[in-house]
Amino acid sequence: MKAGYASRTPASLLGGGNMTQMPMGAVPKKKDEKLKVIGKAKGNPRKLFYEMKRNYSAYLFLLPKLILFTLFVAIPVVWAFVLSFQKYKIFGSEFVGFENYIKVFESDAFRIALKNTLLFTVVTVPFGVISALVLSTLIFELGKLSQSLFRSAFYLPTVTSMVIIAMVWRWMYNYDFGLFNYVLGWFGVGPVNWLGQSNTALWALIIMQCLIPFGVGIIMYLASMGSISQSLYEAARMDGASRFKQWIHITIPLLKPTTLYLVLLSTIGSFQVFTQIIMMTGGGPGSATETLVHLIYKTGFRDFEFGLAGAQSVVLFVIILIFSVIQFRVLRHDE
């Protein structure tokens, strides 16, 4: 998880990815029995009412969450879609049909932001997941104490606010006294105006993302590795498989569900990249580091085109959905 995404997104809690869990976890264990009860009740209004009355305390327990959920999640979700078909005016909005969506697809700004976000995602997600896999494999070879030591070391940056991380990195990329240009100086290269040039700014943000360890990934890979049965390795060793071969043929395939989960999680996170942008580049120079969420923020809260911002976010949602489905399919299928 990369800390600092929109906090109130449910997605940000564990990086947003519990989708993989849903098909498994969400289905009640004793499914048939429950369906029967409700099924029966459904057929008979009086019985349904009786069931509801008998269980009134359950509704009371749910009530606080339901009220909050309705006000601050459910209504806004529906509203977001309605809004995307409106032109927002302070005293009374008007419906404009698909105009906002047409604007989204016609605008260069959105296209550039999408391109930047995709590049960011395509580089940082595989890098993050693979490096987490390699690091946790290495950590797993060590003793208990060193394991927890390194686990903490790699997770610590994850609990730090992205605001802070962005502030330091901005400084590390500083042209005059930044660490990066200093190190480059050893090799007689540079100095480079990392965040100030169109051709390096986005890459500077990508490098930064890659160098923030994917703490969640490491912890989850370690946990999953711990649950792989040792007898599998034992058998492979009997057959004379090398350690590397064992890793390729046993560890990686068995970690696949974890990998899928992590890829989904970090893809969603990566599509929502925002904090670094507003803290470090403001989307510039030009629009070299404009990303989708920063664009939505700007459209909504600097230009106050709420309708257009609504349409942009609906499109973002659809893009994330498509990506998730594709990843789910690809990573699931070749089992």
Partner: peptide
Amino acid sequence: KKFPGRNLIFWIIISTMMIPGQVTLVPLF
């Protein structure tokens, strides 16, 4: 607990977990 509407409520709540927060930013505001 078993009560009418339980699964429906659960699914509605859970399905919103997939929606990124930015979508509701403006209406929530």
